[in-house]
Write a protein that binds this DNA or RNA. Structure first.
Ligand SMILES: [Mn+2]
Ligand SMILES: [Mn+2]
Ligand SMILES: [Zn+2]
Ligand SMILES: [Zn+2]
Lengths: 134, 134
DNA sequence: CTTGATTTTGTATCAAGTCTAAATTCATAA
DNA sequence: TTATGAATTTAGACTTGATACAAAATCAAG
């Protein structure tokens, strides 16, 4: 059956780890968790699996600053906010992005396939702790 | 005079290289060009200079995918488009971003300091070369 | 000048990610 | 079932971008 998705035990473990993750994970974090359910899994295999799962659309990844890539439990198109104080990275879906993308395409001649939006600032919690010492 | 900007010869060279650059440069590219006008400059000094110049607002940098950071000749707020075919990265200023940022802040409670927007797709040239072999 | 702070240099080190060849697993079918 | 070849995993070396460090050089005050 050509075109099917090959889910080996290792790839499945990676997928499960991501599905059960409470946040965005680095490859290293995925590796650590995968080895809890599938000890002996090689570091490179996690990278291979993550690349494969991305290529078949089962996993999304993105980069922030010059840190390691973050792998996403979510698979739908969405954006991210990062707190510059505590480093928290949360999901956010900007509505009405289609019109924006269309405008960018019209004004630049580019055919836009993807938009990566990252908003940086202070999370509500860190805003409060700043109030104390302004 | 405290608060002034310290421009050493090395930092000045880095700044000049960026000002005269025809595109976004990696640290390695900055290093190569700096050494043409200031041979003997150390690799680390270029990194130090780039970090310092960023800290005083004379240089901007951003990251794309997991590649090296790109240093920008432009210093005003702007966005980027990348061609997934040829790798070209161009500048683009999305107008009306303020309202978007305001909406994000309102909906999430974050205080937004910065928005990094990256649009990915095909540049006009690469669209044409795709037409030939669809 | 003298002194202390800042910066640069040269080198070592680090982290994230990629590559490779051998071993293993897997799919297919004789 | 067993044979065969393709795909995947493993283990470890390697690459790249970036950072850390101590000694030397430069710079700014006094
Ligand atoms: Mn996400
Ligand atoms: Mn730019
Ligand atoms: Zn925070
Ligand atoms: Zn192109």
């Amino acid at each position: 059956m050509p075109g099917g998705i090959q889910l080996t035990r290792q790839r499945e473990a990676v997928l499960m780890v991501l599905k059960e993750a409470e946040k965005h994970l680095t490859a290293q974090e995925v590796y650590d968790r995968v080895r809890q359910r599938l000890p002996g899994t090689a570091y490179g295999t996690v990278y291979n699996a993550l690349a494969y799962l991305q290529s078949v659309g089962l996993v999304q990844a993105f980069n922030i600053g010059n840190g390691p890539a973050l792998y996403d439990r979510r698979i739908d198109r969405h954006d991210h906010l990062r707190c510059l104080q505590c480093g928290e990275v949360i999901d956010y879906s900007l509505s009405g992005l289609d019109q924006v993308v269309e405008r960018v395409a019209r004004e630049t001649g580019y055919q836009i396939n993807r938009a990566r939006l990252l908003f940086e600032g202070l999370c509500p919690k860190c805003q409060k702790s700043k109030e104390v010492r302004p």
